[in-house]
Each structure stands twice: as C-alpha cells, then as structure tokens.
C-alpha cells in the first residue's frame, strides 16, 4: 500500500481508490487509506461520507470503483469475515421486542459463539441492571450500549462504530470511551466515527478527517490540530467609519482581505487573536466606535473544507 499518514503498517483494513456514488451524488470520492490495530477516529461533518465508507468496509455497500479488503478478504465475497468483524451502526438497529439479554443471545446464535459470553458483554457496557427489560423501553443511550454489547459478544478483531456516543450522557460517554481504548490496547482494530472533534480527540490517537467524500487530513490528533492552526478565519466587524478602518486593516500582516458590505467589514485573517488586539487600537486612532467583532464561520465543516482545498 501507499505510504503517508493515511496508511498504517500491519493494516487490517485496506482501502484503495474507493469511490461510491448514488445516482448523481458522489458519497465517497477516490479515497485510499488503511486502518490497523489501535483506535482510529473517523472525523467529519454530517454528510461527509463517513457512514458510506464504514458500510463499504462492512460489505453492506459495494464500492462503485476501487477495492477494499478487510482482514485480507473482500467482505462482500466472504461472509466468514463476520466472525471477526462487527459493526455498531448509527441507526437504531435493535429489536424492540427483545430484552438486551435476548438481543445478545440472538447475536451469539447468529455468529455461532457461546451464549456464555452474553453476561460478560452486558457487564462491559454496564447494562446488567436493565438486561432483562425490553429494549423498546430503553433510552437512546441505553440502546447505543446494547448495540455495542451485541458487537462485543462476538469478540471481533475489527470493531467499527458509527457515531456510538450519540445520545449518551457524559458518564456513559466516558465509560464507552474507556472501553474502546481498552479494546484498542488489546490489539483490536477499533474505528470510531464522529462529527465532534473533541470527542475523537479524547479517544483516538490517529484521526482520518473526511469532508465531501474525500480525505481532508490524516495523522495523529496533534497533526490535525497543526493543520487547522493556519486556517484563515472570516470575521464580521461592525465599526463606525468602516472605509477608513478597512484601509488601515489591509496594511496589517495578519489580514488577508477585507470586504465591505454596508456598515460591516468581513475580514479574513490567519490570526484571530492578533486581529482582536489590532482592531480596538485602529478604531481608537481613527476615533471610530467598534461595536461588533464576531467570527462568521468556524464550524468543523468549514475547517475541513479548507483542508480539502489545500490538499
């Protein structure tokens, strides 16, 4: 496989030039990367193509182009791979009529593993107290934990989790993150997708960031942070005498561009803090009152879009 931060040695999942489109919509575009033992975070805004990629890894979707191998085989051709691969899907794929214990026994029966593992899996997700209640009465967080337990009952070598922390409270979240980290430290390949950077930051040493179906960044969390450090920010400034302030701003090194709309300035800067220090000084020297200073777009999506454009 290719070298680079998107690839790892000893990969358990290898993805090569994979694309997936649904009609005219491209969900994943020419993506190559690999995953190995340890915890990898798959980060990206909603609609970035994370779920499509994960479902292709599990063999639920066929790549439109490219190739993909999990544990050395194409998961769409060899169902035996599911003895070692498990998915925790984002959607509520649970049987409401079953109790959590019955749900896990069902998973064990389908995979051909001993039912004795059920209690252990229930304990791992801290669901013992509710294990004999129908899942239909569970909260979102409890359903998430039941889904994780159903994956764990098969003791997979590769565990793929699609937004597993959705709906969990802070205590459940901390518990699940600790569980994922422990599984990773035992040599399992654990892939966790999320659209929340801070969430991924807490658990994953390695991160792949996706946007618009493409790989935006890859590497350790520090590298992703560094890549994000020089992103230009767009700031809306409300000030009296905007034309005079705009001219003065353009002379500043940290200012990339300035656009005037009505009484507002839209300033592009690579250093938000420096701009925050400069603006009051310029306003004071011009005798103009500064009434507003607000970043216009600092969503994760805009950050990732920038990273994709820069690649």
């Amino acid at each position: 496989m290719t070298a680079g931060p998107a690839f790892v040695a000893g990969a358990t999942i290898e993805i090569e030039d994979v694309s997936k489109w649904f009609g005219q919509k491209v969900a994943v575009s020419d993506l190559s990367c690999s995953f190995g033992p340890g915890l990898t975070g798959l980060l990206g805004p909603n609609g970035a193509g994370k779920t499509t990629l994960l479902r292709m890894m599990c063999g639920l979707l066929r790549p439109s182009d490219g190739s993909l191998q999990v544990l050395g085989v194409d998961p769409r051709r060899d169902p035996n791979v599911y003895r070692r691969l498990a998915l925790v899907p984002e959607e509520d794929a649970v049987y409401g009529i079953l109790t959590a214990r019955e749900y896990l026994e069902f998973a064990a029966d389908l995979t051909g593993v001993p039912r004795e593992r059920v209690d252990e899996a229930i304990a791992q997700v801290d669901l013992a107290a509710a294990a004999d209640r129908p899942i239909s009465g569970y909260s979102k967080g409890m359903r998430q934990r039941a889904k994780v337990a159903a994956a764990l009952v098969t003791r997979p070598d590769v565990l793929i989790l699609d937004e597993p922390l959705n709906g969990t409270d802070p205590i459940q979240r901390a518990h699940l993150i600790a569980l994922f980290r422990r599984l990773a430290s035992e040599g399992k390949t654990v892939i966790v997708s999320s659209h929340v950077l801070s969430e991924v930051e807490r658990m994953a040493d390695r991160v792949l960031a996706m946007v618009d179906g493409r790989l935006a960044a890859a590497g350790d969390v520090a590298a992703i942070r560094r890549a994000m450090a020089d992103i230009p920010y767009l700031v809306r400034v409300e000030v009296a005498e905007p034309r005079r302030i705009a001219s003065a701003l353009l002379a500043e090194e940290v200012v990339g561009s300035v656009r005037l709309t009505g009484a507002q300035l839209h300033v592009e800067t690579t250093d938000l803090a420096a701009l925050g220090a400069i603006l009051p000084r310029l306003a004071a020297s011009a005798g103009a009152r500064l009434s507003g200073f607000e970043p216009e777009d600092e969503s994760l999506e805009s950050v990732f879009r920038y990273l994709v454009r820069r690649r």
């Binding site: 599990c58 639920l60 169902p79 599911y82 003895r83 899907p89 794929a93 409401g96 998973a107 159903a150």
Partner: peptide
Amino acid sequence: DATLSFLLLRPLPR
C-alpha cells in the same frame, strides 16, 4: 426497522 444489517453481518449464507 433497519435491523437487516444485524442479520446480514453474520457468517451465514444469505
């Protein structure tokens, strides 16, 4: 109910 994937991601012939 989106539970079909639960059945299909198993080492069983379809």
